[in-house]
C-alpha cells in the first residue's frame, strides 16, 4: 500500500513538473499584464526545439559528451521559447494586437511547428521511424545516485532528473523576486496599473517585454522536460496533449502565486493520472475523472470571484494594452 502511494506521488510529481514550468512562466507573464494564451504552443516549441538541438548534436557527434547533450537542447529550448514570447510581445505590446487572438494564434502555430518538425526530422536526415535520442534522454533522466537506496522515501524525493528540481527552484525564485525585490514590485505595478508605473518612472514597455520573454522561456522548459525526461528523448505528435492549458488553469488555481503553483501543479499532476490508480474503471469513467482539474479550476474561479479578496484577484490590467495617452 505504502509503495503504491509512493509511486502515485512519484507519478504525480513527474506529471506536475511540465505544468509547474508552464504555470510559473505564465504567472511571470501575467504579472506584467500580458495574458499569454500562447503558452501551450510555446511549450510545444520548447519541447521540439530541444529535440532538434539534441538530434543534430547526436547525429554529427559519434560520442556525445554529457555536458553538451544537456546544454545544447537546454539552450535551443530556451531560445526558441523566448523567441515565441518575443513574437507575442511585439504583436501585443508594440503593435497592441488583441492579446487573446495573438495567444491562440501562437498556440496553433506552436503545435503545428512541433508536429511538423517532429514528424519530418528523421526524413530530413535520411532516416525513417520515430525520433529516439536515448543518450540525451538518459542524461536528462539521471537522478541522484542514492535515490534507489532510500526505498519509497528516495522514490518520492530524489528520483527525478535535474529539470524537476530546477522547476521548483525557479518557482520559489520567481515568488521571491515578485514579492521581495524592487524589480518584482515594479513588475507587479506594471500589471496592476501601467499608468501609475509609468508616472513613477518605470519603463512599462521594457518590463512587459522582459517578463513575457522570460515567462515564455521558463514555460518552454516544461516542454523540454516532457520530451527529454518524461518520454526519454522521443517525440510523438500531439504527445504533449493539453498540458499547456492545464498550466494556465493552475495559474488561476494558484491565485497568481508561484510558490502556491508548486503544490497546485503536483495536485493537478495527480488528478491527471489518478484514473490509472483506481482499479476497474471503464474508459468513459476515466475520461470523466480526467476532467477533474478543469472542474476544480472553475470552482476556484467561482470562489475567488465571490470572495472578492483583492490580493487574490488577477492583475487588474491583465489582458489590456497600455499606451500613454495623448488627447
Amino acid at each position: 500500500m505504502i509503495s503504491t502511494i509512493a509511486s502515485f506521488i512519484n507519478a504525480a510529481i513527474i506529471q506536475g513538473i511540465p505544468l509547474l514550468y508552464g504555470a510559473t512562466g505564465e504567472i511571470i507573464t501575467e504579472k506584467s499584464g500580458n495574458l499569454n494564451l500562447g503558452i501551450p504552443g510555446i511549450m510545444y516549441i520548447g519541447g521540439i526545439s530541444g529535440i532538434v538541438g539534441g538530434y543534430i548534436y547526436e547525429y554529427y557527434t559519434p560520442e556525445p559528451v554529457a555536458a553538451l547533450c544537456i546544454l545544447i537542447p537546454l539552450l535551443s529550448s530556451l531560445l526558441a521559447s523566448a523567441l515565441m514570447a518575443l513574437i507575442y510581445s511585439f504583436l501585443t505590446i508594440t503593435l497592441r494586437a488583441n492579446q487573446n487572438v495573438t495567444g491562440l494564434a501562437l498556440t496553433t502555430f506552436g503545435v503545428g511547428v512541433g508536429n511538423f518538425l517532429g514528424g519530418s526530422l528523421q526524413s530530413f536526415f535520411g532516416k525513417s521511424g520515430s525520433i529516439s535520442l536515448l543518450t540525451t534522454g538518459n542524461y536528462f533522466k539521471t537522478a541522484l545516485p542514492f535515490a534507489d537506496d532510500l526505498g519509497d522515501f528516495g522514490k518520492v524525493f530524489f528520483s527525478y532528473g535535474f529539470l524537476a528540481y530546477l522547476a521548483v527552484i525557479i518557482a520559489i525564485a520567481a515568488g521571491f523576486i515578485l514579492n521581495k525585490t524592487r524589480v518584482g514590485l515594479n513588475l507587479r505595478a506594471v500589471g496592476e496599473s501601467p499608468a501609475t508605473a509609468d508616472a513613477a518612472g518605470i519603463n512599462v514597455t521594457r518590463y512587459k517585454y522582459v517578463a513575457t520573454c522570460v515567462g515564455g522561456a521558463v514555460a518552454g522548459l516544461g516542454g523540454l522536460y516532457f520530451v527529454m525526461d518524461y518520454i526519454a528523448g522521443a517525440w510523438t505528435n500531439d504527445g504533449f496533449g493539453d498540458r499547456g492549458w492545464l498550466a494556465i488553469a493552475i495559474v488561476i488555481f494558484a491565485l497568481w502565486k508561484p510558490n502556491l503553483a508548486i503544490p497546485c501543479s503536483f495536485i493537478f499532476g495527480g488528478l491527471y493520472i489518478i484514473c490509472t490508480y483506481i482499479p476497474g474503471l471503464s474508459s468513459a469513467a476515466k475520461e470523466l475523472i480526467k476532467m477533474l482539474p478543469y472542474l476544480v479550476t472553475i470552482v476556484v474561479l467561482i470562489v475567488i470571484s465571490a470572495r472578492k479578496r483583492r490580493e487574490n484577484q488577477p492583475p487588474a490590467h491583465l489582458g489590456l494594452p497600455y499606451f500613454r495617452e495623448e488627447r
Binding site: K180, T181, R182, L185, N186, R188, A189, E192, S193, A195, T196, A197, A199, A200, G201, I202, R310, E311, Q313, A316
Partner: peptide, 27 residues
Amino acid sequence: IHQHFKLVDVFSAAENIVLGLNDNRKF
C-alpha cells in the same frame, strides 16, 4: 499630485511610495 490618483490598489502605502525608485537602497 494628480486628480485621479496614480496608485496601485493592491499595494500598501509604503510599496506605492517607493514604486519606481532606484536609490540603490535595499528594498
